[in-house]
């Protein structure tokens, strides 16, 4: 599988993502600078975390107008797969490819910690190989991770089985206490209606090797890889 990892000024999880995809999952990875006009014919475009353009104005607001994003939008329109983590999720929302927005964490603090997330849907190929309700142990690191959408949009997401992950406690309960940032309905990640675009705040690429605490992230990344390798 070929993965193109986008890099913006201020991206800081790009190297982690490239490491996880290439060294752990053995995908063919191409780093793509935001001013490039060639996505290198990927099966998947991965938009990593960080603080693109210093998070100025709003997280992801400037990055969405980078030259390469025209190619990304065209790739998505053709049915290409997009995977955005943290700032990548924020960028996908700013582009309007995913509904909603990410607001400042409810308690204002920047949160850098391990959390539990529950697989809320196995509809899309990003989670199809996981068991529904499986708990994954994955870190978060964000100041603006509070998922927000109006009630109608939230209902639509749930009706369409588009909520991929919810924050939960160790027993899998998506309680308020286990919701680190105040996200609406404990949402940690969503897909688009077609199930080809995933955005999530937690960082699977940071838990890709046992030495770093868990391999749950690698398990998650491997789902879409298996799907796209089969398709190829």
């Amino acid at each position: 599988m070929r993965v193109s990892v986008l890099i913006f000024p201020g991206s800081n999880c790009d190297m982690d993502a490239i490491h996880a995809w290439s060294k752990v999952l053995h995908a063919k990875v191409t780093p793509v600078w935001h001013k490039d006009h060639d996505l290198a014919n990927p099966d998947l475009v991965f938009i990593p975390g960080g603080f693109s353009f210093g998070d100025y104005l709003r997280s992801g607001a400037i990055a969405r107008f980078s030259p390469v994003m025209n190619d990304v939008a065209a790739f998505a329109k053709k049915g290409g797969y997009l995977f955005g983590v943290c700032n990548g999720f924020q960028i996908l929302c700013e582009m309007g490819l995913l509904p909603g927005a990410l607001l400042t964490n409810k308690h204002l603090k920047f949160l850098c910690q391990d959390v539990n997330i529950r697989v809320a849907s196995t509809r899309s190929p990003f989670t199809a190989n996981l068991t529904k309700d499986r708990i994954l142990h994955i870190p978060i690191a964000h100041g603006m991770g509070q998922y927000f959408a109006d009630e109608d949009t939230l209902d639509r997401l749930e009706d369409g089985d588009q909520v991929a992950f919810r924050y939960c406690d160790a027993a899998g309960d998506a309680s308020d206490a286990a919701n680190p940032n105040g996200s609406a309905r404990s949402i940690a990640g969503i897909t688009d209606a077609a199930g080809r675009i995933l955005g999530m705040m937690p960082h699977p690429e940071r838990h890709a090797e046992a030495e770093l605490g868990s391999v749950d992230g690698a398990t998650l990344l491997s789902c879409i890889m298996q799907h796209l390798s089969k398709a190829a």
């Binding site: 104005l57 709003r58 607001a61 400037i62 107008f65 700013e94 927005a101 607001l103 927000f148 959408a149």
Partner: peptide, 8 residues
């Protein structure tokens, strides 16, 4: 287009 996000 840029200065405000109509979602929020």
């Amino acid at each position: 287009k840029l200065l405000a996000n109509p979602v929020i």
